[in-house]
């Protein structure tokens, strides 16, 4: 908070990188250098710090507290210790939601990223018609997951509708997917993949950031397209790849809206619970069954699980993500 209030003097005094060459290089991450940009750091971070303190930290702590209580939304929460966490493991529907979510994460995140990267590569090279293609490929992602898209998506995967017809023509009669518990989740996977625009745009922006000279230099050395991809594109793009992998994974763990609008009918996450995402069940417990304590415990359990995955990703990133700023 002091950083925000002392912004005035900081502007005149401190907002100058005091980092000399001795600290800016690869070896700059030493203890004593940590203080160097202090005032400037807090100044630039002040909106974020304010947001964290005003809007995020309190609610997060409140939900952590509620996870140890029995809270029906309307009357005082009652402390129950770890009961909610214990109950989860005996809850059949909770286990089902974990299974559905893990399946979804494992299939949808890699598939979406692969498609996004492939299309971004396809569109990266300057071409005259590129603006058109970029917009067209992005179009599905403009729509979001609304009731309109739910109606469309259900219609495509019904009996004798477009998907069924194409598959039947190819010799794979599939029937409708919407009412089939063993296939309904795939509809949501395909919806996620169809809306690959966000990671695609991020990949595109990353590809555009790669200095042309690197490729030119490699071409001088006689490198083919494959070598250029492996030794220039991938390493230079790695911070962006890392970002997309992390965000799509976290996003898939928290997927909610698609199942909420597309596949919920006779209860959330239908048919027969086959699309019961973790957050969907959390919502059902918290807002429909008035068990916000349990829902909060579920949320923190998810935070722990996804936090673990994130930590592992960050740890491995040290060996495959290359930053230009000298650190890795």
């Amino acid at each position: 908070m002091t950083a925000g209030t002392s912004a005035g003097p900081a502007l005149s005094r401190g907002l100058r990188p005091s980092a000399g060459p001795q600290q800016a290089g690869p070896g700059g991450r030493t203890r004593k250098s940590l203080r160097t940009d202090g005032p400037a750091g807090y100044f630039f971070l002040s909106p974020w710090i304010l947001g964290m303190l005003l809007l995020t930290l309190g609610p997060m702590l409140a939900s952590l507290y509620l996870s140890f209580t029995d809270y029906n939304l309307f009357t005082a929460p009652e402390w129950v210790g770890l009961q909610n966490y214990v109950d989860m493991f005996a809850d059949q529907r909770w286990r089902q939601s974990v299974l559905v979510t893990l399946t979804y994460v494992v299939i949808s995140a890699p598939l979406k990223l692969a498609v996004a990267l492939a299309v971004a590569m396809l569109l990266a090279r300057p071409r005259r018609s590129q603006g058109f293609y970029r917009s067209a490929f992005y179009a599905p992602s403009l729509i979001g997951a609304s009731v309109s898209i739910a109606i469309t998506w259900r219609a495509l995967f019904s009996d004798d509708a477009a998907v069924d017809r194409v598959l039947t023509a190819l010799g794979f009669p599939s029937g409708g997917w919407v009412g089939d518990p063993s296939r309904a989740l795939m509809i949501l996977v395909l919806l996620a993949v169809w809306q690959f625009g966000a990671p695609m745009v991020i990949f595109l922006a990353g590809l555009k950031q790669i200095p042309r000279e690197l490729y030119e230099a490699a071409e001088c050395d006689g490198a083919g397209p494959w070598r250029k991809f492996w030794s220039i594109t991938l390493p230079t793009l790695s911070p962006v790849i890392f970002f997309n992998v992390l965000m799509e994974t976290i996003g898939a763990f928290q997927a909610f809206t698609s199942a909420f609008v597309v596949s919920s009918g006779n209860g959330l996450g239908g048919p027969a619970g086959s699309t019961l995402f973790y957050t969907l069940y959390l919502y059902e417990r918290g807002f429909q069954d008035f068990r916000m304590g349990y829902a909060s415990a579920m949320a923190w359990m998810l935070l722990l699980a996804v936090g673990l995955v994130t930590a592992v990703l960050f740890r491995t990133s040290r060996s495959w993500v290359f930053y230009n700023d000298g650190s890795s």
Binding site: L53, L54, L57, G58, A62, T75, A76, P77
Partner: peptide
């Protein structure tokens, strides 16, 4: 009870919202 609950949650929220 309603008020009590309100206060508890509000206190948690407000702890971080001193500026507001």
């Amino acid at each position: 009870g309603e008020r009590h609950r309100s206060r508890l949650l509000a206190a948690l929220a407000c702890a971080a919202v001193l500026l507001l």
